[in-house]
């Protein structure tokens, strides 16, 4: 079976600025693949190269076995694209957005009329079909953008930060829709800087930083490889964290001192929290939680992923 994506030494440079710096990865059919990283890591640049709307500077790239430098239109006919900005056509209604997009692919009218109805149902926008796009909420716009990306029945759907800027409820509705696509066998490539999103949606992911891939694996595999089972978060007040940390040697496997809290990477969180208290340090607040991709990212890059 042909791999959906094969990238080898994929590079994009703008003059001296190397946005994507020789990345290697592959995506198999039906897989849900995540590209994780902070702003400026090269995620969107990578996505545009995968979407055959940006030419690489060097390296090899095959999408469904085809080279985007030579077979752009055929590759794009295979793809669904959900860009970071919705880029919906605000001069048209909801249904017209889907219909015209299908016409851009050359799909016949009768075929599209049926398909538009199906997609409106999928996006839960049937009641909004004749409404102009501006009247939609952020979550509805995102769902419409995803529905638009599905008009041509793509085998690969590229989602660039699909839930950025959405409230929690809208995110969960969107995740539910994406799960359904995954169940239908659509290959998904998702960029995100939300750890929980990557853990929810991705079978496998790469962590990007500064245009390079710094780690690759399944969410659980990455957590196992780069973090501990549990994490204790303790706060002693921002002026005391550093001072207390000096006395916590030997507790847990590793300490991470952040401006507002101390993270204790631990095999047993409860046990280590008791140990901290036993040494006479009573935290203002404490939390024992499972390790997450956030911890992996912090470990790999020394920086928090989301600075909000």
């Amino acid at each position: 079976m042909v791999a959906v994506i094969r990238a080898h030494g994929l590079t994009k440079a703008y003059g001296d600025l190397v946005a994507v710096d020789g990345v290697d990865f592959g995506v198999e059919p039906g897989e849900s693949f995540g590209v994780l990283g902070p702003n400026g890591a090269g995620k969107s640049t990578t996505m545009r190269m995968l979407g055959a709307t940006l030419q690489r500077t060097s390296g090899d790239l095959a999408i469904l076995g085809r080279d985007p430098a030579h077979e752009g239109p055929i590759i794009r006919a295979h793809l669904g694209v959900v860009p970071q900005q919705d880029n919906l056509d605000t001069e048209l209604t909801v249904a017209e957005n889907l219909y015209t997009y299908g016409r851009y692919f050359g799909l016949p009218r009768a075929h599209l009329r049926e398909r538009v109805d199906g997609l409106l149902a999928f996006a839960q926008l049937e009641e909004k079909r004749d409404v102009k796009v501006d009247a939609l909420s952020g979550g509805m716009k995102r769902r419409l953008t995803i529905a638009r990306g599905l008009v041509n029945e793509p085998s690969l759907l590229l989602l660039d930060e699909p839930t950025t800027g959405l409230d929690p409820q809208a995110r969960h509705i969107l995740w539910d829709r994406l799960f359904r696509l995954k169940e239908d066998g659509v290959t998904l490539v998702i960029t995100t800087h939300y750890m929980d999103e990557a853990e929810q949606l991705c079978d496998r992911l790469v962590v990007m930083d500064g245009g390079r891939i710094v780690a690759e694996g399944s969410p659980q595999g990455l957590i196992r490889a780069h973090s501990t089972r549990e994490v204790v978060e303790v706060r002693f007040g921002s002026d005391r964290n550093l001072e207390v940390a000096a006395h916590l040697g030997g507790i847990g496997r590793r300490l991470e001192i952040l401006p507002d809290r101390i993270l204790v990477y631990s095999d047993s969180g409860e046990h280590d929290l008791q140990e901290i208290v036993a040494r006479g340090f009573m935290p203002v607040t404490s939390l024992v939680r499972r390790s997450s991709l956030e911890d992996v990212f912090l470990r790999l890059t020394g920086r928090s992923l989301v600075d909000e």
Binding site: M1, V2, V4, P29, G30, L64, E71, P73, I74, R76, A77, H78, G80, F105, G106, L107, P108, H111, G118, L119, F122, L150, N152, E153, P154, S155, R180, L181, D184, G185, V186, T187
Partner: peptide, 20 residues
């Protein structure tokens, strides 16, 4: 019903015809 994995869909067939 939403989509078929790796199938030659109508959109792809149109693009392939055009590529000649």
């Amino acid at each position: 019903m939403i989509t078929g994995a790796l199938a030659t869909t109508a959109a792809v067939a149109i693009a392939e015809r055009r590529a000649r």
